[in-house]
Design a protein around this nucleic acid. Structure first.
Lengths: 349, 349
DNA sequence: GAGTGACAATGAAAGGTTTCAATTCAGTGC
DNA sequence: GCACTGAATTGAAACCTTTCATTGTCACTC
């Protein structure tokens, strides 16, 4: 009396290797060999087993496989903002590397919420993913240290944590990016310059702002002359909001140029300017950050600081894979260099 | 002699329920009860077990859990283009519903490649995800029928398959969307109108085009008077490319208006027009599709056909969950209505 | 014709969790 | 004291695959 005969009446009981073995008249182990080391199985038997598999509609059970193997065939990328093309481009870079290694990538959107990030990280650890790539909403979360200690490697993407010895990281020099952006505006002769960005809990925003201030200082101006228009997120609506506040300032004190912490803000700001009648770049020059695809297609093509997005993702994935393969691996901090792309939005009138 | 004492020297052997049970001086089953039915365990014992867990750094093994339970706590959304904000917005809608049910969402980017889509679907089935949401690159793939037959429910998002009785689906009436777009252009008095989009293997593109033709016919014009500029993908670069071809046409025969199959194309086209000196809307009116966030922030704010993106995702997720819970559930085909949002890009000069 | 080696196939054990029927125990009512 | 109750806890079985030491088979060689 075999285990089979699962009437088609109710739902589908699982078809397992056992059933395949019975149908093909071979042992359990042979079926497994067909799946995992086909070269050990004679052509004749292999064919019989494969036929049985497709006839029964056998689907390998990944849970059981993983349970035995102790690890999965999956990576995960926990990203800060699924609606920001910057991160989806980074994800593409990751996917390319993963695909070459025959790994799947689990994309998780923390939406910049620490509790959601924590919940994803917990789940991913429980799923025993091979490793996690993350652009953290909360870079100080304890779990980021615990995960590698318990055996799940973590690579920090688009962020560095000073003197971090438990993670690899890949980032772009945000300080330099800020310098480039502001240096450019200073060079174009702007006197009153603003910085649009926030929250300052985001390291990216802090670093870009500090870079901007350094550039001001280098030009012999007081760094605090940089007017900070704070935002609660790096999104298009927040950019529009900042634009409204800007429009509310008397023209005499209003900045003649602003540097935005990312392109979404810059696009929102730009849109609001068009609505309000502030001319760009004549009344207001704008520099964005990230150089997302839409920057060039904006109302006024946007000057922006370009980051090697795909490369960022690909490198991070490579570091992760290296760490997975080599347990006592020395953590590396890779820093890429950004590049200023000048377009109309910052043209001198 | 307990199972413990796993020297910190090498790697970390797993800490399992067994170890927790030993440390807390209770049985296996009790630990499991603390995890799954805490109300069955006395407060004192529960506390002891929980302490042991955090001391040992216990991490539940999801594979084993799933293996026993037969299903996971995960949904997946296989999307067509990770770089298109339309799909990430749909994903947001899905995530909202999933989060409420305490499910994770696996986002997979098929990048419009059938073989990649197939590979993801295969993996997801092996992982025994609760169900799959998909905007298919290949709507005729056999696996889309096999999955539900073998027990993994599938909901089609942003697409319908005529007379489909094996899937629920959620879509927006693309035909109507096309009619709206073209009706608008006809009404504005345009005589030579183009359609930019492709490949026609994408049902969305076909339906929008057919709708457009219907609108032409309704206005008493021959449907084939719609000049089709075919693209190989619905992306910004392809839009630029189409823009170049358009600019190459003699001004006398060049359309005075185009309807683009999505906003990415429209934005690329618009950008190319700005570069080439074709004035929008004076020389060329443009209507896009999707009304993504960037449409309003474009060089010339873009007239577009708005789709209820989040709602689309949320509804699809709800249908999927309903199907998961109720095995003999009647498949539903939900169709939303699009809406024309008129902006500057189609203003009559 | 015994011995050797290569190749195929086998089947039991292991992996960590959950489930459930069975057991223990303290308490209650008579 | 006894039988009974309900709550708390237990331990073995089940989930499905992979691994690996073992057995079986056959063709060759000396």
């Amino acid at each position: 009396m075999t285990v089979s005969d699962r009437g088609s009446a109710g739902g589908h009981r699982q078809v397992g290797v056992k059933d395949v073995a019975a149908a093909a008249g071979v042992s359990l182990g042979t079926v497994s060999n067909v799946l995992n080391r086909p070269e050990l199985v004679s052509a004749r038997t292999r064919l019989r087993v494969e036929t049985a598999m497709s006839e029964l509609g056998f689907v390998r059970n990944e849970s059981a496989r993983q349970l035995r193997a102790g690890r999965s065939r999956t990576l995960a990328y926990v990203l800060l903002d699924g609606a920001n093309p910057f991160f989806t481009d980074v994800a593409q870079g990751i996917e390319e590397v993963a695909e070459a290694e025959d790994l799947s990538v689990f994309l998780c959107n923390s939406d910049n919420r620490a509790e959601r990030e924590l919940s994803y990280l917990t789940r991913l650890e429980q799923q025993r993913v091979q490793g996690i790539l993350i652009t953290p909403a909360d870079p100080h979360a304890a779990i980021l240290d615990e995960l590698p200690r318990r055996g799940t490697p973590v690579v920090i993407v688009d962020r560095t944590r000073g003197g971090d010895t438990t993670h690899c990281s890949v980032a772009v020099d945000d300080g330099l990016g800020g310098e480039l952006a502001l240096g450019h505006l200073v060079e174009r002769g702007h006197e009153r310059i603003g910085f649009v960005g926030g929250p300052l809990t985001l390291g990216q925003v802090r670093d870009r702002k500090q870079g901007a201030e350094r550039a001001l200082a280098a030009a012999g101006r007081p760094p605090d002359s940089l007017l900070h228009l704070e935002t609660t997120a790096l999104t298009v609506p927040e950019g529009r909001n900042a634009g409204q506040r800007l429009a509310g300032l008397p023209a005499a004190t209003r900045p003649t140029a602003v540097f935005c912490a990312n392109d979404l803000l810059a696009l929102g700001l730009l849109q609001q300017c068009v609505t309000t009648g502030i001319r760009v770049p004549d009344d207001l020059a704008i520099v964005g950050y990230d150089d997302i695809e839409f920057a060039a297609a904006a109302a006024v093509p946007l000057t922006s600081v370009r980051q090697p997005r795909r490369k960022l993702g690909a490198t991070a994935a490579e570091l992760l894979l290296r760490e997975v393969q080599d347990p006592d691996h020395v953590h590396e901090q890779v820093l890429f260099t950004p590049e200023l792309v000048v377009r109309t939005s910052s043209q001198t009138p």
